[in-house]
Simulated assay, not measured.
Amino acid sequence: MQKLSGGVFGSALLIAAAQALVAMAEGDLRSMEIAPVTEGHWYRPAVGVSWQWQLLVDDEHPLNTTYAVDVYNLDLFETSSATIKALQGSGHRVICYFSAGTYENYSQDRQQFAREVLGNEVAGWPEERWLDIRSPSVERIMTEPLDMAARKGCDAVEPDNVQGYLEDTGFDFSAQDQLAYNRFIANQAHRRGLAVGLKNDLEQISELVDYFDFTINEQCFQYHECEQLMPFIAAGKPVLNVEYPRGGQKATPNAESVADLCIAANELGFSTLILPLELDGRFRVSCQR
């Protein structure tokens, strides 16, 4: 009986080891991403950090580098190493934006995604489709923007669209799948010496705050969700919040509403900006003094 039990147990160990090797060979490192990576040398922004966010930079919308802010948040793929180095030489830190949860038909890595991992279009963004974040191939591909960010010299990354479990993605992944993926991205960023921000995903903040160095939020005041961001403030990590003027594209801020907003934002300790929805640098109103 003892010999039979040992044989079965030994076989089970061999099978488990083989399965682990197969999973690793396929690039599925998720099982290794349980505890947060907290030890290492990377930028750790403080509560109240000042920032500017401009993702659209072209001939019509040049990058304004004259703001006296701690951090610039720019597009990873479109921003050159020279620009990043120049900003850092002027005393700024640089956050590099990329989409970690969607396929963009204009991005440099678009041809790497297999058809079966592409889901529904992102509402309002017809050039983007949701990704199946459970796929080992998606995990592998998404380490490449992190490698690029490290090569370019970014101080931090902003992986966007990491709340797909709440969206109409075309896939049936769960909140636990999203947690595992977000933790994977955060830990992989830290292993490359990069700070990492949690973009939105307010519903999972309490389970993710230990993994991320800051959070970037859109419109928590408009949607009455700001209280959900407070675990970051309590942990000594900044909330980078942006609100957009109401009235659609090309709308501009209303002075009276901005004053009320800024009083509330400053009371919470948020780093709040009012920016154009297109994030094209046309105007910038900061609540910080």
Rank of each mutant, 00 (worst) to 15 (best):
N182Y: 05
L198N: 11
H190T: 09
R191Q: 10
A189I: 14
G197Y: 02
K199M: 03
G193N: 05
L179A: 07
Q178D: 05
D201K: 00
Q176N: 06
Q188E: 13
I205E: 10
Y181P: 08
G193A: 14
E203Q: 10
F184K: 09
G193F: 14
L179P: 15
G193E: 08
I205Y: 07
Q178G: 13
L202R: 07
Q178K: 09
L202Y: 07
L198M: 01
V196W: 06
A195N: 04
Q204T: 03
N200C: 04
N182C: 14
R191N: 06
N200Q: 09
R183Y: 06
V196G: 02
Q176P: 00
K199H: 15
K199C: 09
E203N: 03
I185H: 00
A186F: 06
D201E: 04
K199E: 13
V196F: 02
L179G: 12
N187E: 10
G193C: 08
D201Y: 01
R192K: 15
N182D: 15
N187H: 14
Q204C: 01
G197F: 03
F184T: 05
D177K: 02
R192Q: 09
N200T: 02
H190M: 05
K199L: 11
V196C: 02
F184V: 06
D177G: 07
G193S: 06
N182T: 11
N200R: 05
L194G: 13
Q178W: 12
G193R: 02
H190F: 15
K199A: 11
A195E: 01
Y181A: 07
I205T: 05
